[in-house]
């Protein structure tokens, strides 16, 4: 029986963290895609239509906030969770305007991230 796995796209220039998310979210049964910069992230979002995006803010080429702006132009529905090592008042305001589900700081506890993802998945079910 084919199971429709929840798809999570991780956009972060830290390769080790992409690998970490693949591991811990993969063990929970989610399908995890990764991108190391905003441009690739935008492409993968359009192509693969993930349910949830985990988004870093400080990345080369274009910032996380700019990436999110462009994603939101075409996709107002995808759940976006920002996980950043560099949070400040301005990016929090920008994130609020762009309708993020959650804004988290690095470093984080795996358990907390998994819990938030599960709640986000559940909420998506409710809204659908």
């Amino acid at each position: 029986m084919a199971m429709n796995k929840t798809k999570i796209l991780v956009i972060d220039d830290e390769i080790d963290l992409c690998e970490l998310f693949k591991k811990i979210l993969g063990l929970e049964g989610y399908a995890v895609l990764t991108a190391q910069n905003g441009y690739d992230g935008i492409k993968i979002n359009e192509k693969s239509d993930p349910d949830i995006i985990i988004l870093d803010l400080k990345m080369p080429k274009i910032s996380g906030i700019e990436t999110l702006r462009r994603i939101r132009k075409k996709d107002s529905g995808v759940i976006v969770i920002i996980i950043t090592g560099y949070g400040d008042a301005e990016t929090i305001r920008d994130a609020a305007e762009l309708n993020v589900y959650e804004y988290m700081a690095k470093p984080f506890n795996n358990e907390t991230v998994i819990k938030i993802i599960k709640e986000a998945v559940a909420s998506k079910g409710k809204d659908d």
């Binding site: 400040d88 609020a96 309708n99 804004y103």
Partner: peptide, 9 residues
Amino acid sequence: YIIYRLPFK
């Protein structure tokens, strides 16, 4: 800044 998590939704 002290940020842990901000549960907007």
